[in-house]
């Protein structure tokens, strides 16, 4: 049944360092505080660091394999069909010689493997990264890491999404809420994650860089046909808050709320204790804390989640 499917929220933002992970972690924690079962997926595979904000550790390391063509010389007729049809030109073929794989160019499509008339290409694999899964502070966390020097980060994101697919398909009641944290930018890794989500929350900041990158990421979100609402982080920076919020309004951008500069948030970030964690001990009247409370209220309203009991009734 469709309403059993967990809600999937993608926290993204275009620009780097705007507070995507901060927001993803604290939104996840706020759902957990209300009794929801939450899965957090860190899709920033080039800088997988969500576990640091939760003061946790990486566990259950699994390799992410990637196709690696191997030429079986006993079978190869040196015809060159593999090289002629390889779009990224990842096979070097000289007349009368065995083709030579250029692994850094290989896209992993396996076309050579499939079309070789002599079946002379074996599908070997190499490790291009790892996934980890762990439980921290009542949250389930899945994280992907791209091996340094490897280029195909989207393949690691795809491995994460395969994990997610298995969860949604085989154990749909295991989680109520799934939060996807993306890398900066509007590239294919980010696209894959937004496309998997029901809604997207871009995080921005009141600077020209923040606005430019926000508009770029919103273009991508619109292209993917997803609804989105924005969080403006560090909104009190240099006194541009009101002007920035006005500019967003003029662009018909709806915001969930804004988070001012707040020393509790900075402390929580450095300690690896999410400010919204019940046991964090931060001032519940503080500006940062209250900002998250307000954002969470708007988020639930937007997603039509009133309280946990209602969700359960729907499921039943």
């Amino acid at each position: 049944m469709s309403n059993r499917r967990p809600k999937i929220i993608c926290v993204t933002g275009g620009k780097g360092g705007t507070g995507k992970t901060l927001c993803a972690v604290n939104i996840a924690i706020m759902f957990k505080n209300e009794g929801y079962k939450v899965l957090l997926i860190d899709g920033d595979v080039e800088n997988p660091n969500t576990y640091l904000l939760l003061n946790g550790r990486l566990e259950n390391k699994q390799e992410v394999p990637f196709f690696k063509p191997k030429i079986v010389e006993e079978k190869c007729s040196k015809c060159g069909i593999c090289a002629q049809n390889c779009m990224p030109n990842a096979l070097l073929h000289i007349k009368g010689a065995f083709p030579i794989p250029m692994l850094t160019l290989c896209s992993g499509w396996r076309l050579c493997y499939k079309i070789c008339p002599e079946n002379a290409i074996e599908a070997n694999s190499k490790t291009i990264g790892w996934t980890y899964s762990t439980e921290i502070k009542g949250l389930s966390l899945i994280l992907g890491e791209l091996k340094p020097s490897e280029a195909r980060s989207a393949a690691v994101v795809e491995a994460l999404l395969k994990n997610l697919e298995n969860v949604v398909e085989y154990d749909s009641e295991k989680f109520d809420i799934i939060i996807l944290d993306t890398a900066p930018g509007a590239h294919c890794d980010v696209e894959l994650l937004i496309d998997t989500a029901d809604v997207a929350i871009p995080i921005t900041e009141p600077t020209k860089f923040g606005k430019l990158d926000l508009i770029r990421i919103m273009e991508l979100i619109t292209l993917l046909g997803k609804d989105c609402r924005v969080i403006v982080n560090r909104s009190s920076l240099l006194g541009f808050r009101d002007q920035f919020l006005k500019e967003l309004k003029e662009e018909n951008i709806i915001i969930l709320g804004d988070i001012p500069l707040d020393s509790d948030i900075v402390n929580s970030y450095c300690q690896g204790t999410p400010i919204m964690d019940n046991n964090s001990g931060f001032n519940k009247e503080g500006e940062g804390y209250q900002a998250f409370i307000s954002i969470f209220g708007n988020l639930k309203q937007w997603l039509n989640i009133n309280n946990k009991i209602k969700v359960k009734k729907l499921n039943g």
Partner: peptide, 30 residues
């Protein structure tokens, strides 16, 4: 993409054993 590899094929298919180059990218060098 992969111009370096394709150009290398041209060089190889014409039986060159020496190449005199200015800028050389990593794929071509490989």
């Amino acid at each position: 993409g992969g111009a370096g590899v394709q150009a290398t094929q041209i060089v190889g298919n014409n039986n060159a054993k020496v190449a005199i180059v200015g800028f050389l990218g990593p794929n071509a060098a490989m």
